[in-house]
């Protein structure tokens, strides 16, 4: 037996792999179909389905509330847009503070470590409550008692702690030989960090950071607890008004429309990076 091409011009190995591929595609298709059928047939058979359908999937309510929800989502996007740059800057500063060697700056290292420990250790919603209610409670005059400011600050402080840790892992992943090479050329420590280590570190952690910002986009909804009428709060208002849960489903769809493409893109970047490294 030799591996001569058969009549179709394919080797034994290729024919075998074709067969294997057809077989796994068939299995995947039929099992997917079975699961979908089960859901479509079984769920409506459940005793409470009609009630659930009426209160969660009411088309009229959906059409009526969706434009307002979309409008309210703009606020979520705004809060995201002014928080994200602040998170990147603060996260990077904290990461760098935790890397300083100079003894005079030792307090900075301790502060950096304490900061990340505290804000990574407390649930986001708690931080939002404590800062969002606590600081305006000091009796600050308008506009300094705005929940937008302090709510955003709570998000910034929490997320910067995570982002700082990711930056730090990126900095540590750059091999020591790169620092040696930079130093051997007479570059200062600051320049070595700025031009050699950081650019490589940041590139490496972009996919992980994107995942943090997808989580941030969702957590903006937590600010609804302290006042701002963003999409989650708006959906709640509609729920009370119409005695119907469909607005929540509408809000979920709007979030997904943003987060799914972003998640896919982050996964794509990560896969690309893994390919390049291997």
């Amino acid at each position: 037996m030799t591996d001569k091409p058969s009549a179709a011009g394919k080797t034994r190995r290729q024919l075998y792999e074709d067969r294997l591929r057809r077989r796994s595609m068939l299995i995947a298709a039929s099992s997917t179909l079975a699961v979908f059928l089960a859901v479509i047939i079984l769920v409506p058979m459940s005793p409470g389905w009609d009630k659930v359908k009426a209160s969660f999937f009411n088309w009229e309510v959906f059409v009526k509330t969706f434009p307002k929800l979309l409008e309210a989502f703009k606020l979520d996007v705004m809060i995201f847009l002014w928080s994200a740059p602040a998170i990147v800057v603060l996260g990077l500063l904290v990461a760098l503070a935790r890397d300083v060697r100079s003894p005079a700056l030792f307090p900075l290292r301790i502060l950096g470590a304490a900061y990340t420990d505290i804000f990574r250790g407390v649930p986001v919603v708690l931080t939002v409550y404590l800062i969002g209610f606590g600081i305006p409670g000091l009796g600050l005059p308008r506009p300094w008692n705005s929940p937008y400011i302090w709510g955003s600050l709570a998000l910034i402080l929490t997320y910067a702690a995570y982002v700082a840790e990711i930056f730090r892992s990126g900095i540590e992943s750059v091999h020591a030989s790169q620092r040696s090479a930079a130093q051997s050329l007479g570059l200062s420590d600051t320049d070595s960090m700025r031009f050699v280590i950081l650019p490589q570190a940041i590139r490496r952690v972009i996919p992980s950071q994107m995942n943090m910002f997808i989580a941030l986009q969702k957590d903006v909804a937590l600010l609804s607890f302290i006042g701002p009428v963003e999409i989650f709060r708006q959906a709640g208002v509609f729920k009370s008004l119409l005695a119907n849960f469909t607005p929540y489903v509408g809000a979920a769809l709007i979030f997904l429309a943003v987060t799914i493409p972003a998640t896919r893109y982050a996964d794509y970047l990560l896969a690309k990076q893994n390919r390049e490294r291997s």
Binding site: S177, Q178, S180, A181, A182, Q183, S184, L185, G186, L187, S188, F195, V196, P199, Q200, R203
Partner: peptide, 21 residues
């Protein structure tokens, strides 16, 4: 201060250590 000295002494490494970016 090592920096002025390092400017006068160049070094090349086994693993090249070029900056990849």
């Amino acid at each position: 201060d090592p920096q002025p000295v390092r400017r006068r002494i160049g070094m090349v490494f086994q693993s090249f250590n070029l900056f990849p970016h």
